[in-house]
Simulated assay, not measured.
Amino acid sequence: MDTGVGGLIARLRAEREISQAQLADMLSRASGNPAVTRNEISRWESGRRRPRRYWLEWIAVVFGMSLFDFEDLARLATPSVDANEAEAIELRQRVAASDVGRATLEQLELAVDELAISYPTASPDMLLLRVRRHLGYVNQLLDVRKTLAEHRRLVVTGSWLSLLAATCSIDLAQRPAAAARLRTAAQLAEHGEHRELSTWCLETEAWQAVTDGDYRRAIKLSQGAQAVAPHGSSAFIQATAQEGRAHARLGHTRETLQVLSRVEHLVAPLKVPDRPEHHYRYDPGKSNAYVATTLSWLGDPGAESIARQVLRELEAPAYGQPRPRRAATARLDLSLALLAGSKPDEAIATTMEAIGSGRLVPSNFWRAKEVIKAIDARGVPEAADLRDAYESLKA
């Protein structure tokens, strides 16, 4: 059974939200060959049959990539955690070694931006595969002769990629791999003397502490990130917002509201960036989402209206593309706010939408569980359906 290719087809199809029948139709129209059917695609995805190379070429075309890229993604589709950690350690060790052209470095830097822009929409496992391919290329270039300035740019690029890989690993609840990649990213950021990158590394670690329930450590890390960050930078604002979320989890109302006021002051002069989807560029829309999360965790009645507004903006944004992953977690924020406002029926429906979206990642499962537990405590019969959906999601 070839589950690598089949699994990749299924993931790419789900990521684009198309059915097996739609994919069969797309392949038929692209190739001019009506031989492929929905049942055939089902057999491919289950691993019962491997597509012939003819169809692999057209599958790659339909998904907008080269056959080489498709096959490379399929080969990497099930990396082991040990391999992930070894990859991170290898990059860290080889940085100390010192002909890379300007065009190559610019291409890599553009690739980092494109990957960061893909983060809100791509599934983390598929994005991680793409990031790993670029990390492998950076590894190769570290052995190539280059100037000190080129070496520094390459190190910084490796740090961004390692940080994004760590973020994907956190999403996937791959803790040892995430920790290894974060250490690599932090060491490369220090080696490249890049303060904003160092800040993002600390902020990402703080976010992981929040998902782990270690809120006091998250506060400490967030404050450490703010001390390192260039004032007013995207990383500085994000670290400040992260501190507020951790305070909210601990029920520190006064501290939470103080932090939210600071964030509002920092965000006020910001303009919407050209690509607001970029994971490492702060924008006013992201600020609203953090306010909704923070207030819902605090149990503030004002969370509901903000959460509704955030959800509308994420699904039909005035700028950029819809962000379905963030919309799924925004629904969980709205559900908590609805429960605080004694609206359990709408909270149940909203939570079911979030779970059924297929966009929640393992690092956010605890948030769904928290909402379900709160609904369950109210003795609502529909809570059983939510629990079943949640267990199916985890499985």
Rank of each mutant, 00 (worst) to 15 (best):
D99R: 14
D99S: 11
G101E: 14
G101C: 07
R102L: 07
R102A: 12
A103L: 12
T104D: 14
L105F: 05
E106R: 13
Q107E: 15
L110A: 14
L110V: 06
V112R: 06
D113F: 08
D113T: 15
S118R: 15
Y119D: 07
P120C: 05
P120Y: 07
T121N: 07
T121A: 12
T121W: 04
A122I: 02
D125Q: 08
M126N: 13
L129W: 00
L129G: 06
R130T: 03
R130L: 08
R132H: 11
R132F: 01
R132N: 15
R133H: 13
R133I: 13
H134N: 15
L135F: 01
L135K: 05
G136A: 09
G136N: 12
V138G: 09
L141P: 05
D143K: 11
V144P: 01
R145V: 10
K146G: 05
L148P: 02
A149S: 11
A149T: 12
A149D: 12
E150S: 15
H151E: 06
H151Y: 06
H151A: 08
R153W: 06
V155S: 04
V155L: 03
V156T: 11
T157A: 15
G158C: 06
S159C: 07
S159L: 05
L161I: 07
L161D: 05
L163W: 05
A165V: 02
C168R: 02
C168W: 01
S169E: 14
S169P: 00
D171Q: 13
D171A: 14
L172R: 10
Q174K: 10
Q174M: 11
R175D: 13
A177F: 03
A179V: 07
A180P: 00
A180R: 01
L182E: 05
R183V: 03
T184F: 03
T184I: 02
A185V: 08
A185R: 05
A186Q: 04
A186R: 04
Q187C: 01
Q187W: 02
L188P: 01
L188F: 04
A189H: 02
E190F: 00
H191F: 05
E193V: 09
H194T: 07
R195C: 02
E196L: 04
E196Q: 13
E196P: 00
E196Y: 01
S198E: 10
T199P: 09
T199E: 09
W200E: 07
W200H: 10
W200K: 06
C201A: 15
L202K: 09
E203P: 00
E203C: 07
T204H: 03
T204G: 00
E205N: 10
A206T: 06
A209C: 11
A209P: 03
T211E: 14
D212K: 14
D212T: 14
D214H: 13
